[in-house]
């Protein structure tokens, strides 16, 4: 009785999940269609003659590889800066208690919420004055800022969970503060740091506003800007646009599948506790 109700629940829930994820399915199969099939009425829900032509086209003719490379070249430094600075800051915040630290935490929470599209105007002019437009450095610097703030919010509760006794024991054994941090505390934080690295990588990989405003040389632009300019020029070629979007999203989806469980627990700890 209970068993059959559980099975029924699973089936209903599975159907809801399938409906919800339909846009992802539609993106993927549209990429496998021919132009004739894209404009078929009624549309086919499974490609009749799956072909890699659209994928080949975006790789060979639309510089897919260069766009993905630029996205990665921006995302990796952002990830490194965010993880390093926020691990340091979150550790300090979890071990110090003063009004200054409270104020810093509130400032971080407030800075974290600001829309990049609003910061784009002043950031563009500041970088223009500094002669940094059309460099990945400018995009990395601007994108890292929010990633650092986000990292501080996510990591601080995690660092608080490390028992202080562990550190005291390490001091008794004659370790310096730096050694205690790098050899005792950081290894315990391996999973949260990995989650933060994955999330900041994914966010920087998908970052759009800063590269759009700070880079106008096409050979420097990441995939997000690439998709956008591709829609502009080839509005009718939806199989190619979808092939581009699917290929571009693939690394992020793979990364997510690997770390899904850890990402879920990391997110909930930071946002509500």
């Amino acid at each position: 009785m209970i068993r059959s109700r559980h099975v029924a629940q699973s089936v209903v829930a599975g159907a809801c999940v399938a409906i919800y994820l339909f846009p992802l399915y539609w993106m993927a199969i549209s990429g496998f269609k021919t132009q004739a099939e894209i404009f078929a009425d009624p549309p086919s829900f499974f490609p009749r003659a799956p072909t890699l032509d659209a994928f080949r086209y975006v790789v060979e003719r639309e510089n897919m590889g260069r766009y993905v490379w630029n996205s990665v070249a921006i995302a990796i430094p952002v990830m490194l800066v965010a993880v390093t600075l926020s691990a340091m800051g979150a550790y300090a915040m979890s071990r110090m208690r003063s009004r200054l630290v409270d104020a810093a935490l509130i400032a971080v929470l407030l800075l974290q919420v600001l829309p990049e599209a609003l910061l784009a105007t002043p950031v563009f002019i500041i970088f223009k004055t500094m002669g940094l437009l059309n460099t990945h450095l400018a995009v990395v610097l601007a994108t890292s800022a929010r990633a650092v703030a986000f990292g501080l919010v996510i990591l601080r509760p995690m660092f608080r969970q490390v028992p202080y006794e562990l550190e005291e024991a390490s001091y008794v054994d004659g370790c310096s503060e730096w050694q205690t941090f790098s050899r005792i505390v950081l290894p315990l934080m391996r999973v949260p740091l990995m989650v933060l690295a994955a999330i900041t990588f994914a966010q920087a990989y998908g970052q759009f506003v800063y590269p759009l405003t700070l880079l106008n040389r096409q050979d420097l632009q990441p995939g997000t800007v690439g998709i956008y300019s591709f829609i502009g020029t080839e509005i009718a070629d939806w199989h190619r646009v979808m092939a581009f979007a699917a290929l571009f999203a693939l690394p992020i989806l793979l990364l997510f599948m690997l770390l899904q469980r850890q990402i879920v627990s990391g997110l909930t700890a930071g946002a509500l506790k």
Binding site: H6, V7, S10, A13, G14, V17, Y20, L21, P23, L24, W26, M27, S30, A202, Y205, G206, F208, T224, I227, Y228, I231, W238, V241, M242, A245, F248, A249, I252, L253, L255, F256, M257, Q260, R261, I263, V264
Partner: peptide, 27 residues
Amino acid sequence: PGASTMRGLLLAAWILPGLVVGTVWKW
């Protein structure tokens, strides 16, 4: 059965770049 796996699958949408999401819905 399968509740936590299905819940995890749903998150796949959240991790996508906003530009990809907008493009797919435009189509």
